[in-house]
Amino acid sequence: MKSKIDEIIEKQNNTDRSDLLDVLQEIQVIEGYLSEEAIIKTSQYFKLASAKIYGIASFYDHFKFVPQGRFHIKVCNGTACHLANTSNLRKEFEKILKIQHGQCTRDGMFSIEYVPCMGACGISSVISINEEYYSSVKPSDVKDMLENLRNTDDRID
């Protein structure tokens, strides 16, 4: 059976290196991360060493090499949010979920990422969970927020 990665690669009509990042981005959108398989397949297609592909991908912040959680939490780490004490907020997330930036909890529920300015500095601190924004978040809100997310997920199942 053809995998989604194959489909994306076959869609390309040339092996021009300038398309490399676009292909990797597209794979990441669909798969959520770049697996070993994805890197090897792209390297075969572009006729570049897989180490080189990994070297390029790991240079950029966007490419992930581990799957994201069901709830991907982005915490704004812009200057205005920093002034609004986001470091406490980050610590709270790290403390409760016991994971660091770029990691995912063992049950695959949550992953966190710190991103530069989201452009909503007036209502910092800002976080986004699966692209839905929450503003003026305080460290004390975190526990309930995560609990709620856990519950909503159970209902879907």
Binding site: T79, A80, G119
Partner: peptide
């Protein structure tokens, strides 16, 4: 635009 605190180009 990646400066943590600038968002005018985006806007």
């Amino acid at each position: 635009e990646s400066d943590p605190g600038a968002f005018m180009e985006k806007s």
